[in-house]
Amino acid sequence: MSVLFSTARARRFARSTEMSLLTIGVLGFLVLAAGSHGGLLHGNAIRGVLTYLTVPILIGLAQLVVLAAGQMNLSVGALGGFLAVFTAGLMADHGVPAPLAIGVAVLAGALIGAANGVLVVATQINGFIVTLATMTILLGLQYRVAGTRTIDAGSPGLRRFGTLAVLNIPVIFIVALAVAGALAFVLRRSLAGRRLLASGGNPLAAQLSGISNNKSLILAHTLSGLIIGIAAVVTIASAPGVNKSIGGDWLLPSFAAPIIGGAALAGGSVSVLGMVFAAFIVRLVDLARAQYSLDPSWVNFTVGAVVLGTVVIGRIREVRQAKNTSPGTGDDSRSIGSENRSIGSQA
C-alpha cells in the first residue's frame, strides 16, 4: 500500500498512527494465538479470520469515503442488505447469470449512492437525515424482496469464488484489499479524489479554488454506494444464503473502523491503511470473545468504549495542539473568541 505515502513528514506521521494500530493488531493476534495453543495459526483458522474480515473492511471503506468529504452515510447496511437480496433474487428467481447479476449489483449500488448525494445537494440538509430517509426506504425494499425466506443465489461459480483461497488467503479478502488499494489510490492520486478531500477539509477554500463541493459530495456518495455493491456481492458469495436481516448490523462497525483508524470526522483526512488495521483489531475482539467463550455483548461494549475513547483522546490532543483558543462548548460550533489572530500577539 505504498500509494499511501508520499513525504518524509507524512510518512512519519502515518507511521505513528498506523504503526501503533498495526502493533496492537499483531500483538493482540499473537496473544490470542498463544492462548489458543497455536490453534489460531492453522490455515483454516486464518482463513476464517480473514473471510470474516472482508465485509467489515468493505463497509468501513464505504463509510470512510463519505467521511472524507465531511459527510456520513447511514444507509450503508440497508443498501448492502437490499442489494444482497435483490441480486440473489435475480439469480435464484430469474436465472440471471452470475457475472451479469454482479454487474447489476455494483451499478445499482453506485446509482443509489449517487441518488443519496444528489438528495443531499438538492435539499441542502445534512447527509445524516437524508441517508436516514433512504435507509428507511431501502430497508422496506429489502423486506419486500426477501420476505421471510432465505435466498440462495444458487450459483456454484459464485459460491466457489466465495470460498476459494490462495495459500489460505481467501480470494474475497484479496478483493477487499484491492478495493482498499484502489480507493487509497483514488483519494491519493486522482484529481477527483483530491478535490473530494479538499471539499471535506475546507469547503470554503475548495470553493475559492474553483472546486465544486457539490460534485465532491455526489462523488463520495457514489463511491460509497459502489463499494457497498461489492460488499453485497461478497456477502452473497460467502454466506449460505441471504435474508432480510443481512446488513442489519453493518452500521456501527462501518463507523468504528474509520474512526479508530484515524479519519478526521470533520472531513478532509482519512487513512485507508489505518482503517484496515482498525477493522482487523475489531475482528480480534470478536475472536477473543469466541476463544474465551465470552458473551457476544463484550464485542459491542469494547468497540463502543474504544470508539468513545478514540474521539475523546483525539479531541484532547487537538485542543492541546491549538491551546491558544478558548474552551468551546458543544459541537457544530466553534468556540467563541477563538478567531485566529495575527501573529502580532506572539511577538
Partner: peptide, 8 residues
C-alpha cells in the same frame, strides 16, 4: 459510540 457501548 455511546450506542455501541450501551448495547454491549
Amino acid at each position: 459510540a455511546m450506542d455501541f457501548a450501551l448495547l454491549g
